[in-house]
Design a protein around this nucleic acid. Sequence first.
DNA 1: AACATATGTTATTTTTCCTCACATAACATT
DNA 2: AATGTTATGTGAGGAAAAATAACATATGTT
Lengths: 129, 129
Amino acid sequence: MSREFRRAMPLLPISMVMKLTELSARQIRYYEEHKLIEPAKSEGNRRMFSLDDVDALLEIRDLLNQGINIAGVKKVFDMRKKSVVKSTNKVSISDAELRAILREEIQQAQIMEKVSLRNGDLPRHKDEI
Amino acid sequence: MSREFRRAMPLLPISMVMKLTELSARQIRYYEEHKLIEPAKSEGNRRMFSLDDVDALLEIRDLLNQGINIAGVKKVFDMRKKSVVKSTNKVSISDAELRAILREEIQQAQIMEKVSLRNGDLPRHKDEI
DNA sequence: AACATATGTTATTTTTCCTCACATAACATT
DNA sequence: AATGTTATGTGAGGAAAAATAACATATGTT
């Protein structure tokens, strides 16, 4: 399982995210409402957050603290998403790499089925976990 | 924050651990009762599991599936713990490393305070996260 | 002044998790 | 064969966490 995938896996309940980010539940839900994050939902409709979500929230917090508003944060995120796509598009990969990736995707699918959430979210940026 | 610490940080609710390990809540609590794992507890008395806990549970599952009983699993774990201690004892570290470790410990303490759980658990073995 | 933004607060309902107790299949022991 | 042990299932009852929704509000904007 790739590190990126692990970081994108929805695992944490909102209570943990609150502690890790020092944000209130209200804030976290508000940011979601404005599409800055898109946490997965459990069968029972509970939000489940990935480590990527936590990263995003920490960054949202910082940007807001810098006086940037929600719209600004969204812009920043959208720009990053685009640039990631652009930079990713260029790389060509070897056959072996491709096979490795496929193997991972398959495993991902299996785990995702087990974890069975209504929607995940895409990796945003990768630091250390 | 060190990888080991991150893996030892209690983050996941039992529902997620159930899905990741394919164990029932009953099984997970039973293994805890027998001291094979020691998940942290939230203020509200909910079990919170670390990635290390998940690793341990996966291994418990495998060992049990191999016909080994709980006592046997415990033995295996205890043996490993001892050998880890032994191998760790020998290494001597540089000043810089020591300072880096201390810095991390401090950050750990801060986060731990935020996460404020009644008890964590020690890293057991470290694979990839 | 009126409006918008970001967040707090509170009420209500639903979901998740806890403990405890009892049940039981598969093995082991007497 | 009867009894005990181990590992797990199941269900009741209760507590905690989280959801939605509505109203409140400080600060900044037009």
